[in-house]
Design a binder for these strands. Structure first.
Length: 554
RNA sequence: GCCCCCGUAGCUCAGUGGAUAGAGCAUUGGAUUCCUAAUCCAUGUGCGCAAGUUCGAUUCUUGCCGGGGGCACCA
């Protein structure tokens, strides 16, 4: 609808210019919005006010000139008014809304999709938690955001890949091995003081028991170094398997699990360092090798190879991101916890150094999650090994509720996740509110089948009977859906969809309570059935993008 | 000290360079002989503070105040 108005306005402005009413043909972008007040029409534009500068005319005069040039071949406009400082308000005829319904019902699963992404290859990398312990709620938020964003971009027309980067090299993994090994030793009666810098959680003890059961004796016979190495590999594999299963539980499947270690094994890190050396992007100082990140805007240079000869995490990360582009992605999106924000400048530097453009790399920083129960913080300390895992949360509140809660907030603000609130099946928990729309309509459709009212198909006579304001309101909202998707994809804001769905759900529930769909008038009933069938599809499409199910019954 | 984010209703959060800033919860009172009451209808106080840019600022800029996070040859 907006597109149609857009054309009409531009054409009118063109006419005004040709007939000499406008001195300039330099027109601003036509911004059309839905006014907050119904009395301001269905759509409104500030075009006249924005043109005031270039036309050197008063906004109202401009608006009048536009009005004279308005042509409405589709016969969609019932009234146009100039209001306030120069707003042009459009009132749309009810009949103009009706074709949208057949479009929604026809496009069905694809309604809202577009080809704006131009099949661009985009990679979304998310979660990527170190395999040193189970996932917690914070990872869950990143998982929900990343997965949903991937869905949205794909719907937008991008060619999207989901990837999990496994930090399976380096000190933390060694610490994991050491932690398990020490617990293992204590199983064999060797009293060892458990160091503070080791992982304290109960799962470490479980891992020790498992490795003991599988290869206890051989492990005892090994040198400490070798044993720790064995423990590390064993534990990391197990922990990763757990992570994978938690994520699958959450409905998330990665296209690829990329191993950090493989970067070393394949020589990609070494090659990258050689390359940087040859381009004089790294230099030696104090026995270490430094990357000139300051040349790309970072506040200080960063170490890639330490004095002891070991590479830093940053080194493999440069190689990793370089590799992403080599694999053909022309855009890379990383989703990180907000505590990594200081890392962005150096990663930007790395991306630029590998010859890529700034706009080919985005980092989404997902803020902290506070886990609460009845408004009180749930005590959590990774150190002490006391924490509620993502798996626990999903088991307790359910996958749909958990996902929806993560996505009804902008990722840029901290999130209070209350376990008790999340379990409630009331309006405290909008996920059920939205899903209920889907179930209710499914039920209506079942009923219509029982009553043998015939299939839900397009019937111009029936659809033309949809004239009450709640019906037009629903269509109007659904007409808006594709635009919500565009914005959500372009701004990388999944939460827009969640809020859109809540709004559409509210409009539906209100309609449902006020008007009966399956009325005694068979024609009207058919029209309303066609309307709610469209609502059902839009709700489903939206929920699917969020990774939330759309149930037929509740 | 420096950097990033946040500050909107009693609470949890949306939103916007424009015409009277929204939703849920909480409060109070209502709605079902009929399509699922996990529903609906009614009920009011608010953009942290101060300057600047603008025809117009809650939105953009700067400063201040308050909250969170970050400033490793850790990952």
């Amino acid at each position: 609808m907006k597109t149609k108005l857009n054309k009409i306005i531009l054409k009118a402005a063109g006419i005004a210019h040709r007939t000499g009413r406008f001195p300039s043909d330099n027109f601003p972008e036509v911004l059309i919005e839905v006014p907050k007040l119904e009395s301001h029409g269905d759509y409104s534009t500030s075009f006249a006010m924005m043109s005031a500068g270039t036309q050197k005319m008063s906004p109202r005069k401009i608006a009048e000139a536009i009005l004279e040039g308005i042509e409405d071949p589709g016969d969609i406009i019932s009234d146009i008014q100039i209001a306030g400082p120069g707003f042009i308000n459009f009132y749309i005829k009810p009949s103009a809304w009706h074709p949208i319904l057949s479009r929604i019902n026809a496009e069905d699963l694809r309604y809202g999709a577009s080809d704006r992404g131009q099949r661009r290859k985009v990679q979304v990398e998310f979660v990527s938690a170190n395999p040193t312990g189970p996932l917690h709620v914070g990872h869950g938020r990143g998982a929900a955001v990343g997965d949903s964003l991937a869905n949205i971009l794909s719907f937008y027309g991008c060619d999207v890949q989901r990837e999990y980067y496994i930090n399976n090299s380096g000190r933390q993994i060694h610490t994991l091995g050491r932690s398990v090994y020490i617990r293992f030793l204590s199983l064999h009666g060797r009293e060892v003081v458990f160091p503070d810098d080791c992982y304290q959680g109960d799962y470490i003890l479980d891992l020790a028991r498992q490795i003991n059961a599988e290869k206890g004796d051989s492990l005892l016979a090994m040198s400490e170094d070798k044993a720790i190495q064995n423990c590390a590999r064993f534990a990391a594999d197990k922990v990763l398997a757990g992570i994978r299963s938690d994520l699958e539980h959450f409905g998330i499947v990665f296209d690829r699990w990329y191993s950090e270690q493989s970067l070393y094994d394949d020589g990609k890190v070494d090659r990258m360092i050689d390359d940087l050396l040859s381009r004089d992007l790294v230099y030696r100082k104090d026995g270490a090798l430094w990357f000139r990140t300051t040349s790309f805007g970072d506040e200080k240079d960063r170490v890639v190879v330490r004095t002891n000869g070991q590479t830093t995490y940053f080194a493999s990360d440069i190689a990793y991101h370089h590799d992403k582009y080599l694999r053909g992605f022309d855009r890379v999106i990383d989703i990180w916890g907000a505590d990594h924000h200081g890392y962005i400048p150096r990663m930007n530097a790395a991306v630029e150094a590998s010859g890529r453009n700034r706009n080919q790399f985005d980092v989404i920083l997902v803020r902290l999650v506070n886990l609460l129960r009845n408004g009180k913080p749930v005590a959590m300390s990774t150190r002490a090994g006391e924490f509620v895992t993502l798996g626990d949360v999903i088991d307790e509140v359910g996958r749909d509720a958990a996902r929806f809660i993560f996505l009804t907030r902008h990722y840029d603000s901290t999130l209070d996740f209350d376990l008790e609130l999340a379990k409630r099946k009331t309006n405290d928990n909008p996920v059920y509110y939205v899903q209920y729309v889907h179930a209710r309509i499914a039920s209506i459709i079942r009923k219509s089948v029982e009553k043998e009212m015939g299939p839900v198909t397009y019937d111009p006579a029936a659809v033309s009977m949809l004239t009450v304001k709640e019906e037009i309101g629903l269509i109007k909202r659904m007409d808006h859906f594709p635009e919500v998707i565009l914005r959500s994809a372009e701004e990388m804001t999944p939460h827009r969809i969640a809020f859109y769905l809540i709004d559409l759900a509210a409009a539906f529930h209100a309609y449902y309570n006020k008007h009966r769909v399956l009325t005694d008038d068979p024609i009207l009933a058919r029209g309303r059935l066609y309307l709610v069938a469209a609502v059902k599809k839009v709700i489903r499409n939206g929920l699917t993008l969020l990774g939330v199910s759309a149930p037929e019954r509740m």
